[in-house]
Nucleic acid binder design. Sequence first.
DNA 1: TATTAATGACTGACTGGTCAGTCATTAATA
DNA 2: TATTAATGACTGACCAGTCAGTCATTAATA
Lengths: 202, 202
Amino acid sequence: MSRPCAEPPETRRRRILDAARMVLVKEDLEDLRVDDVAKKARIAKGTLYLYFRDKQALMSAVFSDLSAQLESRLQKASGAPPLDALRIIAQEHLSFMDENPDLATLLVRRDPFLRKERSAAPLRERTGAHLSILVRSIREAVAAGLLRPHDPQLGALHFLSLVRLFKVRQLLQNSGKTPLRSQVQELLDLFLKGLGSPEAAS
Amino acid sequence: MSRPCAEPPETRRRRILDAARMVLVKEDLEDLRVDDVAKKARIAKGTLYLYFRDKQALMSAVFSDLSAQLESRLQKASGAPPLDALRIIAQEHLSFMDENPDLATLLVRRDPFLRKERSAAPLRERTGAHLSILVRSIREAVAAGLLRPHDPQLGALHFLSLVRLFKVRQLLQNSGKTPLRSQVQELLDLFLKGLGSPEAAS
DNA sequence: TATTAATGACTGACTGGTCAGTCATTAATA
DNA sequence: TATTAATGACTGACCAGTCAGTCATTAATA
């Protein structure tokens, strides 16, 4: 019945999560040291284990948290007309990454499709959800004659890999001062029209 | 003056390298255990250190080796007319990955652009070389009016991310019985024409 | 040719350091 | 005082890298 701690458990959990995210990004490694997270969160290591079963659970929580945030943004697209939905999805992805750079680094660096470790499972699941939002939009766009017929899963993966591409480009040239709106346009152009000149045939 | 070993040093080095590659793929982790490599190569751990300074050097050698193989294939494209060059590059990438599946897994999983560890340096360098081959072809294609004007680095990154996309798709649906030729065509179509229907405007 | 010495490639038990997870103790609250 | 949160020193597993010793092979000698 007593709570000697200075803050509510939820807040503390959040602090640990944030610390873990920061450490994960700074280390730029796949792994993190629990001691580092504890130090960053200004708690004892033992305390951390009151909030998370083990390191795996902690890392899973970090990714789960991140992609839940992203997912809630992508929901804005549902209900919009097909192409608008795609534009919104692109925009939300890119702006989300703009607003949380380290997070973007994490999401881009960890490819959820190619990881089999336990810690990646929730992320993969979430990305599956992102995919299904995309797939729906793409199906609709094809039905409306706005996209040429194709395997929607390929289309969705392609779209996501374009998002990834833009983020990679930004990370490479750390200037990255291209305004969001034109990035979105460029992305959609690549997706819809490719790079071939209009008059040429392949 | 004596060579008690049953095989020439070059062969042995190769065996270690192959073992390391296999372990790296099977573990599906970023890391590997030197003991595992030694066991796989059927040599004592100490022997391994006669051929490689340390674990880093071993891993660097693995990636360096892999991308050198790929690079030599991509050279086939040099000299070809712009669009043919792109087709050849796509084809060589995909067929190379078909022939060496675990290697493909490695190359796709490790994103050379986003890693900072020492072991990734040679891979990043090589991929830089791949990029420059691509950039050249793309510049020529733009000059010839076959591609619309754009930042060639973006184009090259886009092309590579399409290659990656196709490999990811294949890894996801492990059936993957799409014939090479049609994959190449599909890739080029995405690159050149995108997914928009011909008559629609964005 | 038979015997012995020299060589160095190869071995694997060992070391030292790292780090995830534990738990006896302490501090805070009711 | 009773209860529970928080602590951090400790443990034990793990693993990269080492190095003193082995022994197959070659060279030298009789």
